[in-house]
Amino acid sequence: MKLSGNTIFITGGTSGIGRALAEALHKLDNQVIISGRRKALLDEVTGANPGMQAIELDMENPASINAVSARLIADFPRLNVLVNNAGVMHIDNAAGAVDEAMLQTTVATNLLGPIRLIAGLVEHLKQQPSATIINVSSVLAFVPMAMSAVYSSTKAALHSYTMSLRWNLSDTSVKVLELSPPWVQTDLLDSKEEPRAMPLQEFIAETIAVLGTDTDEVLVERARMMRANPGPNEYAFVHEFNDILSQPPQ
């Protein structure tokens, strides 16, 4: 992917990976548009990054996605990069009762929202000389975290959808990438001070470097072992991983 001269729409751009990625791409001479549900947070980010634009978007709401898709096409005709980054993560218990509100929110935001947004923008992206869709999944798509089974499942589903999307767009100008972060120091599960997680700016710097290559999967080094796990014997590492997480940090 070329790293400058793009018009880029990033969902979930008010905090964490989304904001840091938006700011890094903004500094590389791209027109960046971020989205989120809270106008005050959008204003804070754009205020700190003159020239960046923002649009309110509720990823759980199909009508909001349709309206924002139409507005993006009208207001930013050179839009050529979509980054599906918005996501929510909650602790759950797959061996007990499910919280219906949590289930609906997580599936709608992490899976249905990206699918709907792609559908709203893909015909426009096909008309661009060069375009990119980046779906942000997670290493938990490949090694699920049992205490967040619903989140892990949505990321596994997004990985599967991304592979189908890549095949379907293989004869077009649209390249499909998957960004699978490891554990990063963000607000997700209050991980900003988590010593076992990757520092956010270190993650962003390595991610930008990989984005600039000709790759379909954007993986930092810390993500590679978990990405490589799926296969006939994958449960052994899944079991070990979750046993480790169940212990208090040393």
Rank of each mutant, 00 (worst) to 15 (best):
D171V: 12
D171G: 02
T172E: 13
T172S: 14
V174N: 01
K175Q: 14
K175H: 08
V176M: 00
L177G: 02
L177P: 10
L177W: 00
E178D: 09
E178M: 05
E178R: 02
L179R: 01
S180Q: 11
P181T: 07
P181M: 08
P182S: 09
P182W: 00
V184W: 01
V184Q: 02
V184D: 00
T186S: 01
T186C: 01
D187W: 05
D187F: 10
L188V: 11
L189V: 13
D190G: 14
S191A: 14
S191F: 02
K192D: 11
K192L: 11
E194D: 15
E194R: 13
P195V: 12
P195K: 04
P195I: 10
R196L: 14
A197Y: 07
M198K: 04
L200K: 05
I204L: 06
A205V: 11
T207C: 05
T207F: 09
I208H: 05
I208E: 09
V210A: 03
V210T: 13
V210N: 02
L211I: 10
L211A: 08
G212N: 08
G212Y: 06
T213Q: 15
D214I: 00
D214N: 12
T215V: 15
D216E: 15
E217D: 13
V218H: 03
V218N: 06
V218Q: 06
L219T: 08
L219R: 06
E221L: 09
E221F: 04
E221T: 13
R222K: 12
A223R: 00
R224T: 08
R224M: 05
M225W: 07
M225T: 11
M226T: 01
R227Y: 14
R227P: 01
A228Y: 02
A228F: 02
A228C: 01
A228D: 15
N229H: 13
N229Y: 09
N229E: 14
P230E: 00
G231V: 04
G231L: 07
P232F: 02
P232D: 09
P232R: 03
N233T: 10
N233D: 15
E234F: 07
E234N: 11
E234D: 14
Y235W: 12
Y235L: 11
A236E: 15
A236S: 14
F237Q: 08
F237M: 12
V238C: 14
H239C: 06
H239Y: 08
E240K: 12
F241C: 13
D243W: 00
